[in-house]
């Protein structure tokens, strides 16, 4: 129990640091919110007045305090580009992104684990070569390149799936699924390749351990030895790596969502960055980092379930 409590406390501390870093980085931006609102050609006196009323002349620490206070009380400010309150906007976009992130992670895990195990069981044979080569190719191509290939093939060539846009699952579940499929695949392929390599390396290590030899010496069949005795030990490490890859996914969605015009967090962040929408940049960068951290926390807590050694220490 104290392990879980420790992890949560540690997360809160990191969250605080994340907010500080986010705020610091975005405050190096040339130009400020007042300039963004009134435009560069505006009257300097009016600008100064707006600055004063927005509190931009206060010390940075005071501004940070005000910002973090707003974040804590649910007042996340208004986006300069979208002219909307930021909190509901982020919630909506995060749902859209959560859909493709979960989707791609599932695709990747379902394919990567069997492939990786398969390669580890046949080291240096054709099964290993085939799966390892495919995985190597997978990690070597930029994911937006996969995206372009899929647009060319499934959207333009075969006309199976739409190549752009986002549909709310609440409106039309099937259509939403069709729109989410290509971005998820584009995200999932690289991830799958990475996880295949990881699973293979982990399983290779496990299969060389003494308890595997003991299991064989008991007369257990290879299937039981590999898929029960071996895999049960790989679940934790593979899960951890998958959790770390959530961060990678939230980086990739910026590119992929822009490519597919899928209006989620990545797309939103990109728009905010392009237009220097400072309140929106701050909020979305903070939210992404927080979600990534939360995902890792969940993995850490799940680890307790699959590995008894952590449960009791």
């Amino acid at each position: 129990m104290s392990y879980i409590l420790n992890r949560i406390l540690s997360m809160l501390l990191t969250l605080f640091l994340i907010s500080a870093i986010t705020f610091a980085v975005t405050n190096i931006l040339p130009g400020d919110v007042a300039m963004m609102i009134m435009g560069t050609q505006s009257n300097p006196e009016a600008l100064a007045g707006l600055r004063e009323s927005l509190g931009l002349n206060d010390p940075l620490l005071v501004q940070y305090g005000r910002w973090i206070g707003g974040m804590l009380t649910g007042d996340w400010g208004t986006s300069l580009v979208f002219k909307e309150p930021i909190a509901p906007l982020l919630l909506q976009k995060m749902t859209a992104s959560g859909l493709i992130v979960l989707f791609s992670m599932s695709i990747a895990l379902i394919c990567a684990v069997p492939l990786g195990v398969w390669a580890a069981v046949h080291p240096n044979r054709w099964q290993d070569t085939a799966s390892s080569s495919a995985a190597l190719l997978g990690v070597s191509l930029p994911d937006f390149f996969w995206g372009i290939m899929m647009i060319l093939l499934f959207a333009r060539g075969l006309h199976w799936l739409p190549s752009s846009g986002f549909v709310d699952p609440g409106e039309d579940l099937l259509l939403a699924f069709r729109h989410a499929l290509l971005p998820s695949l584009a995200l999932g392929l690289g991830l799958m390749a990475h996880l295949t390599r990881m699973t293979r390396a982990t399983m290779t290590g496990i299969l060389n351990q003494e308890f595997i030899r003991v299991a064989r010496a008991k007369g257990l069949g290879e299937r039981t030895v590999v898929w029960r005795y071996g895999l049960a030990n790989a679940v934790g490490p593979v899960m951890t790596v998958a959790g770390l890859q959530v961060g990678y996914l939230f980086g990739s969605i910026i590119v992929i969502e822009s490519l597919f015009n899928y209006t989620g967090m990545g797309w939103l962040t990109y728009q905010a960055l392009l237009n220097r929408d400072i309140p929106l940049i701050q909020a979305s960068v903070f939210v992404i980092a927080a979600v990534v951290m939360l995902a890792n926390l969940i993995v850490d807590l799940l680890y307790v379930l699959v590995d008894p050694r952590i449960r009791l220490s």
Partner: peptide
């Protein structure tokens, strides 16, 4: 810093 996706950090 590792909580920020590398690409997001670089873009920002």
């Amino acid at each position: 810093l590792l909580a920020f996706p590398a690409l997001l950090l670089a873009l920002t």
